[in-house]
Design a protein around this nucleic acid. Structure first.
Length: 898
DNA sequence: GCGTCGACTTGAGCGTACGAGA
DNA sequence: TCTCGTACGCTCAAGTCGACGC
């Protein structure tokens, strides 16, 4: 249904403190009143959709669904709230933080502000106040220290240095102040061998003596990191070839620290087939077996499951067949359902659940129309006339002259197919080979240069103009809370830049128009004005079970969608982030049994079971991605379940060499020592198959995930990545942090961060200027060393009362006292050391991307708690964006352990 | 039981602002 | 003040995984 846009903006304001979101109180009353509010504000829109409201949400937020923060119930006027300070922010950061602190602009003058004002009158906005969090980590966190299985494979297996977590200090008074997050939360290097592949470096660094001949137990004492690989390599092939059990909305359900997901599925909830093999198992909490090799501990854990369950935290779960023998009939039942789809006990993505009550936003902003430049390209050496449409696409191609895409025949082929359609049959241009785009490319370079040469005032003015245009699209009001919108800009037209050998690279990504876009907005909210006069939105929806504000079909893959979501700093995203980490933390309680189960199944008679066991092992041990099936029109990459026979090579006696293209066509090359049964099983899976056949032919991600859910509610393959990343960080930080200054502690953090990045195979391309930078540093170091030599000579002479030698230019140097020369020598030494360290770090991290794991895999509470314990300002670790994204984690107890 | 759809997260690359050092 | 390097923030591609319908 095409819908006409009204001619009025929903809201428009000039809040000068828009850096940060506004904090409003969330509550049921808030929601209902906000509805009322919205209906007061809304206009009778002619563009109202015909009652499509999506699935009606059935879930309602619990009466106590507010957060500890919001529950302060202090009303604030709709003006600036007091600065929020994190107890762990430095004064400097506090300032910036306060600047960015959530406020309701008193200057706001449009409907949005009207809403705000009204809302404030109704006490719907909650003051942001500093308060002591009522939340505290439970004893669980303390007991974790002894929980061997709660540690990453890495840590469990590593003979980690003896420096334990001695320095854990109680919070200082300053620390006891809590950063009050906007979101309602109740609870709360260096490696010398970087030329070697990531994995190899990892192992050489942290491997404390791995050898294939070593007994399993000793191997298992190494970190996952060191287990990952011995002599393999990971390198990039660039261009070459919910909620678990609870509702999603309230963030405050349970203490983050002690949240135990007590609401485990009941036996009666489990699938029929499980009735014959249900076992009540506990989520393991303690483990005193640190000293016992993992293999033995696994055995022990299996045998002691039922025994332990009576003492430890109980959770009624469905377990894999490994846990208990089953009779024939039940086996038959199992075959029917054991590897079937999810038990649907706890939809983790919160599908069908209400995500918001009221949603107001202004839609999306479109890229400006194309402005023809009139520069003529050459065809067969002669200038050619192009229509603006033809010229636009030619320019898209021309500006990519210097990129790797130009050396890819597929890119050119796809471009030509689409562009030639635009040119038409009778156009003079008949072949791409005779086209010369250089004039357009040169024009492009000139434009770039002009832009570069603009004065800072001009740049500033442009920036401000852009900001003014975009301001109203940058924000949404979700349940009365002003939240930042993530990608409110519609993607501009261009040539598709698929990664790796993507079959569609070079295709024209056409311009998206309002009639392509479906808007999702609150039922009572005004429909956003369509920014392009005379055009209208494709559709308007009021679906509060989803979080997207708008979507359109991807022009490259029309069956796929492009969504507009809230920004990472929004409470909706924060909530789902927190749930993700809580799920990973929950895995800690189950991991022991899961590992025992898959270890047992390595030798299972049933091939599917065996494949699931081996795949789970690889996902756990190597942090591989699940590996969904892919269509032919996508790049040929694989994950665990889609590994091909040719991707894994068995190297006797028990090593596996992995070599495949993973996500984003990043090459994963890693040789790793595995348990003998795994090695044998892989060999069996390969037998009789061609290299291009699936290694796990009986397996796909849905079967694997269905199985994992039987082991732990909501468990999927990707949870292992989060779990192993976070627990590795937690473990390393707590074992390796020593007394020292902030800079030294930051280095410890970076080292841990790097280990995680290597585990997750997060790579970056080597910067173009890397080698130049290294040569420059080498030169400087050589220069300094020369200077040092001279100074030493001068010192000797000075001690003998002789004048210094002449410098390189033959000039007489100043006479200095021996003390002064000694001081200079010391300074030069410090300089050299620093430079060498910098050089090493630079080399060390040239292919490792630290950011990705920090953003996606490392539970921010680990970092925040560590910062609090060791008095490291949080902004030394998290930048502004991360601070906003992880606002929900800022009031974590300093004793928090993952 | 399976394929597809839909909604979301994860991820690397790139341009740019900013800060350090010359 | 200028240059250079880096971190940040943004962009959009490419994953994961649950729901749904046949």
């Amino acid at each position: 249904m095409a819908v006409e846009a009204p001619s009025k903006h929903v809201f428009d304001y000039d809040d000068e403190d828009d850096d940060g979101p506004v904090v409003f109180k969330r509550s049921n009353t808030s929601s209902s009143k906000q509805n009322q509010l919205n209906s007061e504000v809304k206009k009778a829109s002619s563009q109202r959709s015909d009652g499509q409201s999506g699935r009606q949400a059935s879930s309602v937020r619990a009466p106590n669904g507010q957060n500890s923060v919001a529950q302060t119930n202090k009303s604030i006027p709709p003006s600036k709230s007091p600065p929020i300070r994190s107890p762990i922010l430095s004064p400097k950061s506090s300032n910036s933080s306060s600047k960015a602190s959530p406020v309701v602009s008193s200057k706001a003058s449009t409907s949005f502000n009207d809403q705000s004002k009204q809302a404030s009158k109704q006490n719907k906005f909650t003051a942001v106040k500093e308060e002591k969090s009522p939340i505290k980590c439970t004893d669980e966190t303390n007991s974790d220290d002894d929980d061997d299985d709660s540690k990453p494979l890495s840590a469990r297996l590593k003979g980690i240095s003896s420096q334990g977590n001695k320095g854990v200090s109680t919070s200082t008074p300053a620390q006891s102040q809590r950063f009050v997050p906007k979101i309602e939360v109740k609870g709360s290097a260096e490696d010398p061998d970087d030329d070697a592949p990531l994995s190899a470096r990892f192992s050489t660094k942290s491997n404390t003596g791995t050898s294939s001949s070593k007994p399993y137990g000793s191997h298992e004492k190494k970190p996952l990191a060191s287990k990952i690989q011995q002599n393999g390599s990971i390198m990039k092939v660039k261009q070459q070839k919910s909620s678990m059990l609870s509702d999603k909305r309230p963030l405050d359900k349970g203490n983050s620290s002690d949240q135990s997901y007590a609401k485990k599925p009941k036996i009666s909830d489990t699938p029929t087939m499980m009735k014959t093999k249900q076992v009540t198992v506990k989520a393991e909490k303690d483990d005193e077996d640190d000293h016992i090799p993992i293999s033995q501990r696994i055995k022990k854990s299996v045998s002691s499951v039922s025994k332990a369950s009576s003492v430890k935290q109980k959770a009624t779960k469905v377990v894999s067949s490994s846990f208990k023998k089953i009779n024939k009939k039940s086996k038959k039942d199992m075959k029917k359902s054991k590897y079937s789809k999810s038990t649907k006990l706890s939809p983790s993505s919160g599908d069908g659940q209400k995500k918001w009550s009221t949603l107001v936003h202004n839609g999306v902003i479109f890229p400006p129309p194309y402005k023809p430049h009139g520069v003529k390209m050459l065809y067969d050496g002669r200038p050619v006339d192009l229509t603006p449409e033809q010229e636009e696409v030619a320019t898209m191609f021309a500006v990519m002259q210097e990129t790797d895409y130009m050396s890819k025949p597929q890119f050119k082929k796809n471009f030509w197919e689409d562009w030639s359609k635009l040119l038409g049959r009778n156009h003079v241009i008949k072949s791409l080979d005779k086209c010369d785009f250089t004039p357009i490319y040169e024009w492009h370079l000139q434009e770039k240069e002009k832009k570069k040469q603009m004065s800072s005032e001009e740049k500033k003015a442009l920036k401000e103009e852009k900001l003014m245009q975009e301001e109203k699209y940058m924000w949404a009001i979700v349940d009365g809370v002003k939240e930042k919108v993530g990608n409110f800009r519609v993607e501009p037209p261009g040539l598709f830049r698929g990664r790796g050998e993507h079959p569609k690279m070079g295709k024209l990504k056409r311009r998206i128009r309002p009639c392509d876009i479906t808007i999702n907005i609150g039922k009572d909210a005004p429909i956003p004005e369509c920014p392009i006069p005379g055009e209208r939105w494709k559709d308007i929806k009021h679906d509060n079970t989803v979080t997207w504000l708008a979507f359109w079909n991807d022009p490259i893959n029309p069956k796929e969608f492009k969504y507009v979501f809230l920004a990472a700093s929004s409470s909706l995203k924060g909530q789902s982030d927190k749930e993700k980490y809580e799920k990973a933390r929950l895995l800690k309680d189950y991991i022991k049994n899961i590992r025992a189960a898959y270890t047992k199944d390595f030798t299972a008679k049933d091939v599917t079971k065996r494949q699931i066991a081996v795949a789970t092992y690889l996902i756990d041990k190597l942090a591989l991605r699940a590996g969904n099936e892919k269509d032919d029109d996508e790049a040929d990459t694989v994950g665990c379940c889609t590994l091909k026979v040719g991707n894994v090579e068995c190297i006797p006696p028990n090593k596996l060499k992995f070599d495949f293209l993973g996500k984003d066509s990043i090459q994963y090359v890693n040789t790793v020592e595995v348990e003998l049964p795994v090695y044998k099983a892989i060999g069996q899976f390969q037998t009789g198959k061609r290299k291009s056949d699936d290694l796990f032919d009986e397996l796909d991600t849905s079967k694997l995930n269905a199985h994992l859910k039987e082991l732990m509610p909501g468990l999927t393959a990707k949870v292992f990545r989060t779990y192993n990343a976070s627990i590795t960080l937690d473990d390393m930080l707590n074992k390796e942090t020593k007394d020292g200054d902030v800079a030294e502690k930051v280095v410890i953090y970076q080292r841990a961060n790097k280990e995680v990045a290597i585990i997750c195979n997060h790579q970056r391309s080597i910067s173009k200027s890397h080698s130049a930078q290294m040569s420059r540093l080498t030169e400087k170091i050589t220069e300094l060393k020369g200077l040092l030599k001279e100074l030493k000579t001068d010192l000797d002479r000075a001690k003998k009362g002789k004048p210094p030698l002449k410098d390189a230019d033959g000039k007489q140097k100043r006479n200095l006292t021996p003390e002064a020369i000694e001081k200079k020598i010391a300074q030069t030494n410090v300089k050299i050391e620093k430079m060498e360290r910098d050089m090493q770090t630079k080399e060390d991290l040239k292919t490792v991307a630290l950011g990705t794991s920090k953003i996606n895999y490392l539970d921010p509470r680990i970092t925040v708690a560590w910062c609090k314990r060791h008095e490291v300002p949080i902004e030394k670790i998290f930048n502004k964006s991360l601070l906003a994204k992880f606002a929900w984690a800022m009031d974590v107890d300093p004793d928090f352990r993952f």
